[in-house]
């Protein structure tokens, strides 16, 4: 059964059509990944689900109820929780308080004045929070102020804040962006372990994450869903390869050869989403300098993240080594 049904959603910002007749159907209990090049409209689409943006036309039906024109807090109360691209947490409060607050939203609703009894009398809410903290592995840090957490822990905390509400639908906007390899693996592991019954929509650039988590993948390009299906179908889909590899974006200046995600050699070197960042991160980690024309990303195709691959691809593209 479809828990979220998106029909003919259009959204334009001025003359720019960010979403163009998007149709999407998310099955209950599945992990649905949305991938696509930068600027494809992924975040815009997510914003239409949580009430941050209102589509110009079309409909978004969640659990038989339209989400359009409803305020963010009301949407949350119907069972939709969201993890943001940059963690939105209560930085001045303790970890435990951070998780107790969403638990209060779940138990007490969107507005209730409990100004007389202390927080300490609400043991049931505390128990909910402690349980989730234990699941995500933050129970040891429960009394620390949230601003002092590492980036990975902040993400984990935000995840806990969503999980404590036991939502019907969890939206994850690039849950591993900017994370180290180890943190990324932890996150994937966490998502596979916790809240398995929760339907999830994941926007992600890291193909490794996408293919480990997703039951279903929708590919968005230039505001339209160009393909959708099981991961193995998407991998071999020529349309997807075209969107990723034949696109106008991220063309390398001197690119002549390159490799795509499945390892096939293509005529030119293009950038898969996240690859530029990956390359930069790899080079940064190895402590080497990157030489490249100003304003241009050196490109690499595919989800490879081994430094040799990066170096080899760069060498093929530029005729010289990426590292000095």
């Amino acid at each position: 059964m479809a828990i979220l049904e998106v029909k003919d959603v259009n959204k334009a910002f001025g003359g720019l059509k960010a979403l163009n007749a998007v149709n999407l159907s998310v099955e209950e209990g599945t992990v649905h990944a949305i991938i696509g090049p930068n600027g494809a409209g992924k975040s815009t689409l997510l914003n239409c689900f949580v009430g941050r943006l209102i589509p110009d036309t079309g409909s978004v039906i969640f659990n038989g109820r339209s989400l359009l024109g409803i305020k963010p807090h009301e949407i949350n109360q119907t069972g939709v929780a969201r993890v943001f691209q940059t963690p939105e947490i209560f930085t001045d409060l303790s970890i435990l308080e951070n998780v107790m607050i969403p638990a209060f939203a779940k138990v007490d609703g969107s507005f209730r004045i409990n100004a007389w009894k202390t927080v300490g009398t609400r043991g049931e809410v505390r128990d909910m929070a402690e349980k989730v903290l234990e699941e995500v592995g933050l129970q040891e840090k429960r009394d620390i102020i949230a601003s002092s957490l590492s980036r990975g822990d902040k993400r984990r905390l935000e995840m806990a804040m969503c999980l404590v509400q036991d939502p019907k639908l969890l939206l994850l906007d690039e849950p591993t962006a900017g994370m180290s390899r180890a943190d990324t693996n932890n996150t994937v592991d966490l998502l596979q372990r916790v809240g398995t019954h929760i339907t999830k929509i994941v926007i992600e650039h890291d193909m490794h994450v996408v293919f480990s988590l997703a039951d279903h993948i929708s590919v968005l390009a230039q505001g339209t869903v160009i393909a959708g299906g099981k991961p193995e179908d998407i991998k071999g889909n020529p349309k997807v390869q075209e969107a990723y590899l034949g696109g106008r974006t991220h063309e390398c200046r001197n690119g002549e050869t390159g490799r795509n995600g499945s390892g096939a050699v293509r005529g030119r070197l293009f950038l898969l989403p996240g690859a530029a960042e990956l390359l930069r991160r790899e080079l940064y980690r190895s402590g080497r300098q990157l030489r490249c024309e100003a304003g241009r990303d050196p490109g690499i195709a595919g989800p490879e993240r081994r430094r040799q691959d990066v170096d080899a691809a760069y060498h093929r593209a530029h005729g010289r080594s990426a590292t000095a």
Binding site: H73, Q77, A81, E88, F90, D92, P102, A105
Partner: peptide
């Protein structure tokens, strides 16, 4: 206190 710290999160948390 949560409103003071992060009003956006409060809204998306259902308050």
């Amino acid at each position: 206190r949560a409103i003071k710290t992060n009003q956006v999160r409060m809204n998306y948390t259902g308050f």
